[in-house]
Design a protein around this nucleic acid. Structure first.
Length: 556
RNA sequence: CCGCCCGUGGCGCAACUGGAUAACGCAGCAGAUUCCGAUUCUGGAGAUUGGGGGUUCAAAUCCCUUCGGGCGGGCCA
């Protein structure tokens, strides 16, 4: 929380608590909350202490509130006065100095305003996108990318040591399938009557890889053993695909600290070790030749670890991977951004980790629902040109990256989302990104205008700041003060949509302020204070846009 | 059959995680302004928060139940 805000709330809590002690003695009283009421008539902050204590003190809330107010002392605090309202709330009104100090605080902290040490430097790894390297990324990956990247930024701002990670599934069944598909496409170039099985990859990219491979090696692999040929094709195509994922994501402004390969878990023997550890834990059994994990010990359905043919199922490397994150690399917490279709698998992972003596609550999964693309009011399922599902790259051809990143962070992950393509490209105030960027550009322009008029803007004094008394001004300042807490809430709930909502709301409050309060051609002291307010709004808007990795244009 | 998630004005959505009269934006109605940046503002209308029970000072929020939608429950990933 911003120091000023937390200081004021602390003062409120202390005043009320000591008043209560005076009135009711040294009883142990339950903690209460200080919140900003939805209706501004109810003061700057409201405390629900009297309501909470009604039961233990055996008095009516309003009587308790009355006695608290009689014994309360506001000396040397930001609190100016208080009143009792409704069922027993204590509404508190803060001094001019409080509002002024908030603005000075923002000016002082600048690009660091909004940051806090809430996370205490705990190490968090956020894994997101993790698309199969066997083909291009789809729309779901676009949402996961924007959500994961922004959530990482939010956690960072809330004081966590964050690392972004991409898990590359470069082993297992889908790689087999990838090899098979490449192989058939390659042979197709030299042989007749090649049929692609139903469950192989049919994409254009596979054909392109096969052709590129043939241009280098010609037909010299045709007569080699199938396994050797497939391996050569995979070794050729997979690094290219991974490189492609990197460049596409970079275009989307996402850069990872770590690209973690599944194959490294097999090479290091960690996958094997996990099976041994699970067997040792006593939570496994054999049935029909397969090795099962007895997840019913952990309130979850049993599942197979190693098939009867000796090949581990996909869960094993996944368990090993999460074990690696939490126990080998010792992250305090691991966060996975997953499609909602994976929800059934999270409890299994947690059950296995518990069996391995890892505190499973250190793993959190953020599940995100499907995205639909909407154009002209209709859902579009495939690209008109190719007829295939729309990829991340084609989406970014259609809409600005700013819009894509903002839009995907507009709804909480766990809700279905229709992405309105028309709105995303539109340059009107209906488009939230545009609206927010416009507010920022407008402030920059106001400041430029003032400067070109020869107005000298200085650090405002307390007297100047106390002139900001209009309802719109007060509301705007109070909203600015809420940023730090908003970021912390967002980090707590893994919901980055709070941040975009905050940005839109701030832009709205700024426009409302600006409609009522002139900044140009007014008295010097008031002008200086209002200009400072404008600048602080710009600072906050910019800090948010930077977190979202969205441009903050000074002119539009 | 079992499990998870979601149901909020016509539409899109919010509600500080249990707080005061359920906020905001489109669309629609009435008006003002057309002046620092493309406008913006004011007023009114529209909601039994899917339905029904319960918990308590207080429920959109928690519990039970029911209806509707999405997704899972493979020796697929």
């Amino acid at each position: 929380m911003s120091q000023i805000v937390s200081l004021a709330k602390e003062q409120i809590v202390n005043s009320i608590t000591s008043a209560a002690k005076k009135a009711f003695g040294e009883n142990e009283l339950a903690p209460f909350s200080v919140e900003t009421p939805s209706n501004r008539e109810h003061g700057d902050y409201a405390a629900n202490a009297a309501l909470i204590w009604a039961k233990s003190l055996k008095k009516s809330p309003r009587d308790i509130a009355g006695e608290i107010v009689n014994n309360i002392n506001f000396e040397n605090t930001y609190i100016e006065r208080c009143e009792i309202a409704g069922p027993g709330f204590i509404n508190l009104f803060l001094s001019d100095k409080y509002y002024g100090d908030i603005l000075l605080d923002i000016e002082e902290k600048g690009e660091n305003y909004g940051r806090s040490d809430y996370g205490k430097g705990k190490r968090v790894v956020v894994e997101f996108v993790s698309a199969n390297p066997t083909g291009p990324m789809h729309i779901g990956n676009a949402r996961g990318g924007a959500l994961g990247d922004c959530l990482s930024a939010v956690l960072d701002a809330a004081g966590y040591a964050v690392e972004r990670e991409f898990y590359i599934n470069d082993a297992g069944n889908q790689i087999e399938k990838f090899g098979l598909s490449l192989d058939l496409r390659y042979r197709e170039l030299y042989e007749d009557n090649i049929e692609m099985p139903e469950d192989s990859y049919h994409g254009e990219d596979i054909i392109a890889h096969a052709k590129a491979f043939a241009e280098i090696h010609g037909d010299k692999y045709i007569n080699k053993p199938e396994s050797e040929r497939r391996a050569a094709l995979v070794d050729f195509a997979l690094p290219k695909n991974i490189e492609g994922l990197k460049t596409d994501l970079k275009k989307y402004r996402i850069e990872y600290d770590t690209w973690f390969k599944e194959s490294s878990l097999h090479q290091s023997g960690e996958t094997k070790k996990i099976i041994e550890l699970l067997v040792k834990s006593g939570h496994t059994y054999e049935s029909e030749g397969a090795l099962w994990f007895k997840a019913t010990d952990f309130d979850c359905e049993d599942f197979v670890l190693v098939r009867a043919n000796g090949v581990p199922t996909y869960v094993v490397p996944d368990i090993a991977y999460h074990y690696n994150k939490l126990e080998v690399r010792k992250f305090d917490r691991a966060i996975d951004i997953l499609g909602a279709d994976h929800h059934g698998y999270v409890p299994r992972l947690k059950a296995a980790l518990t069996a391995l003596n890892v505190d499973a609550s250190r793993l959190d999964a953020v599940l995100m629902q499907m995205v639909r693309l909407v154009k002209d009011g209709e859902v579009i399922k495939a690209s008109k040109r190719s007829g295939k599902a729309i990829t991340l790259v084609t989406l970014l051809d259609e809409v600005p990256i700013d819009a894509a990143r903002f839009f995907f962070n507009l709804r909480e992950p766990n809700s279905h989302f229709d992405f309105d393509l028309d709105l995303a490209v539109s340059e009107s105030s209906n488009n939230p990104v545009y609206y927010v960027q416009y507010a920022y550009a407008r402030i920059c322009s106001i400041i430029r205008n003032l400067e070109s008029q020869g107005v000298e803007l200085s650090r405002p004094t307390d007297e100047e700041l106390s002139l900001l008394k209009e309802k719109e001004e007060r509301e705007l300042i109070l909203y600015l003060s809420a940023l730090t807490d908003e970021i912390i809430q967002s980090a707590k709930t893994y919901d980055s949509a709070r941040i975009t909502h905050y940005a839109v709301e701030l832009a709205t409050k700024f426009h409302k302020f600006y409609a009522v309060c002139r900044v140009k051609d007014i008295d010097k002291p008031l002008q200086n204070a209002r200009a400072a307010l404008c600048k602080d709004v710009a600072t906050v808007l910019k800090n948010i846009l930077t977190m979202l990795k969205i441009t903050a244009p000074e002119k539009m």
